[in-house]
Design a protein around this nucleic acid. Sequence first.
RNA 1: AGGCGCGUAGCUCAGUUGGCUAGAGCACUUCCUUGACGUGGAAGGGGUCAGCGGUUCGAGUCCGCUCGUGCCUACCA
Length: 893
Amino acid sequence: MKEFPKKYNPTESEQSWAKKWQQSDLYSFKSGQAREESFVVDTPPPTVSGSLHIGHVFSYTHTDMVTRYKRMKGYNIMYPMGWDDNGLPTERRVQNKFAIRCNPSLSYDDSWSPSEAKAKTKSSEVSRQNFIESCGLVTQEDEKAFEELWRRLGLSVDWDEQYATIDSHCRKISQLSFLDLWNKGFIYQNESPTMWDVDFQTALAQADIEDRESPGAYHDIRFAVDGGESFVISTTRPELLVSCIAVVAHPDDERYQKFFNKTAVTPLFGAKVPIRPSEHADPEKGSGILMVCTFGDAADVDWWKTSGLGIKQSIGKNGRMLELEFGSGPFSSIDSAKAGEFYSDLVGLKVHQARKKVAELLATPGTCPLNVDATSMDCALVGEPKAISHPVKYYEKGDRPIEFITTRQWFVEILKHKQPLLEQGKKIAWHPSHMHTRYHNWVEGLNQDWCISRQRFFGVPFPVWYKVLDSGEVDFSNPLFASVEKLPVDPFTDCPEGYSENQRARPGGFVEDPDVMDTWATSSLTPQLVSNWGLDEKKHGEVFPMDLRPQSHEIIRTWAFYTIAKAWMHSNEIPWKNVVISGWILDPDRKKMSKSKGNVVTPQNLLDDYSSDAVRYWTARARLGVDTAYDESVFKVGRKLSTKLFNASKFVLGFFAEESVSSLSLENVTVAVDRSFLSSLRKTVEEASRSFEKFDYATALSVSEQSFWNFCDNYLELIKIRAYGAEGVSNDDRLSALVALRVGLETYLRLFAPVMPFITEEIWSWYFADTSIFNHHGENNSIHLSSWPEGSDFSGLKETGQETDLLGLAGEVLSQVRTAKSDAQKKLKWPVDNLVVEVGKENLDSVKKLVDDIIRAGNVLNNALELREANEGLDGKLVRTSIILAEEEVQKA
RNA sequence: AGGCGCGUAGCUCAGUUGGCUAGAGCACUUCCUUGACGUGGAAGGGGUCAGCGGUUCGAGUCCGCUCGUGCCUACCA
């Protein structure tokens, strides 16, 4: 028996165990075992954002508890940790931290190193390579901070299995994936209108977009019709008037049928545009007739694609109005000079400025009759703009609405494959199951292929170059791909096969593909990153498909979806068998905690104040998929449980400290109430196991906790005097109690080990590490390698032949005795002169077996307990008592 | 506007296939000053289970509608 402390100091103890675990191979994956003997987790790589928040602690602990359970069940655990460091969030942070901007046209400066910027430093430009190195520096620091937090929290991660989405391994697999998808025909390149963020100046995918309710205004604008009439369209984007390529109304709309196949003339710019019928025009909305512009929205893009008309691009990649030349190219006009004059007021303006300016121009008398035959019109704007609020598409990380801009991009084909992707979703078990609906809805609602190229820097480059023709033109139609053996490549510094560096960007030579991949193009490969897909078939076979994908619900559309899609495209498999969805942490006002809202609680203080075990306890109380309000009182409950575990263990193990108890076999549990306790514990064990099998750690904890408090409050109180070996207690009866106590404690510690790994390990080390028969996983006698309790552990228990819950009955009697003492404002040890217990006939024999323990626990003097059969109803209660307390606190005779 | 959740004590939440005289913890009130535990223990008060209607011997639980609330998706004329 190890010396154990009088008081529990969680901070000290937790730190010391974290250190010991770090030095051991407790959590390492053992290669060479069969797939079915392993349990493999696809850990979410956290965005290394520089700030840790309580939401991280929450969901990662959920996964850890399941993993610890599986480890105790004997599985070979693969529990890796990745860091999501590539992508925009890092770039943005680096830009601010060092006050730098990336200018890809600069060349690398190896003498330069980043330094922390003082407030309001003006940004300086650095080369692509310098920029990328700065990103690497920052993320490494953050990854250390995360690792420290994870270790302190007790996540049982195998730290040998680490990856960072920007590291060379991940770049290699990402490029391999790209080439594989290209070879399988899932990838194409296309120059077409794509959603574009004008601040980050990059293309985006559907999953990156969110709607935000934003203010806008309907501008009613009169268009002339060639031949002398006019109509009014209603638009929120008058600045796109210059890009108008057509006007459409619903084919059944009688108001406008007469105009179909005629030509309209736009105000200000005098462009002749066709008037056509189109189903997508809603007669109820606005004036029922609308202008199609290149491009105002997705509907414009769709319509344009089938129209055979050209593009009039007026918004630049930076979100400002482009310089345009009227009278030539697409911008023909019936009065080019006038059009150019109007437009000169708009050139270079940002979209929202141009909108205001156009409205002014349209409202100015005399600016308008550029039409053919409208001498009576001098102002195209009809009435005042009418303010509205409407949803507008934004990049989820952006500040200005997205635009549709024509650029060359790489796409992964998904629209064609909705059906098989829906099927894949059905093969996966979603926990809770209704989360499957989210996946299903998302896939059904997809309307764009996945744009995977981004015009950014800190990401995985495409392993692609293009030939430069002798004419100097770039030949995009025959890309040059890197060979698989060369991966990862950086096309900026590596050359395509058969070329040398001096041919870069020269006629007859080559140029690199300038883009990087969408961060999800890498994150969607987390299972393959860990399994070494394409590189190490043996390891891949040992861990793929994985067992568990934990994640939160808002990224079902991205992370879950893309991962499922890739696994299907690469190998026609599901990436994992189970998806487990954690809810969100809500602040006390029931808003989601997030950095941008400034309502984030940092985990560090909580761990200091309440201990890791207590914080873990709080996370364990939250059921899967259910959002949880941040509530400090739950930490206190967790701390209380860990204190109770400590004290109860100290007490129980006290019996084993000084004397050796010769036989601890379950056969020695001969007293009925002891057997009753153990058989109820067996039920608890079975229910906790069932719950854990469904990843329902919350119910597992709940039933264990309930049982444990009953153990402390009722069972221990009832039998402790017998366990002391008080006068008149036979050795057999005492031994019965001791064995039950030991088995009970040994079981509770293991039940709580996944939730509270520190306190349970601490207690286990005092005694069970040396004595427990459940330490059979090797040389390390950590509780975390002991075996999870099973119903069969109790099979040595002698059958009682009856189902009565003796502990419950005894608890009921004791409770009534306590109530009597409490009502009389006496202490609990206050003696009882006389105790009458009435029970139903069916329980008479049962209670007889409890009499001795009840007399001792209730401090009934002179064995004055009278047991009677109740001859009247008991009002639904098990027992009725009448209690006479002693007058004075006399010593027991 | 559709889809998916949720609405149970002051607060945070359990409540399996309908059997409930509706539970727990926190908070509150009273008591106990401790032979495992004052970072504790015991006892107690507190609820028309959002509302209405239906199925049933019986509904917190199943069905329908309504209200409130949250998320996901759609919606830039």
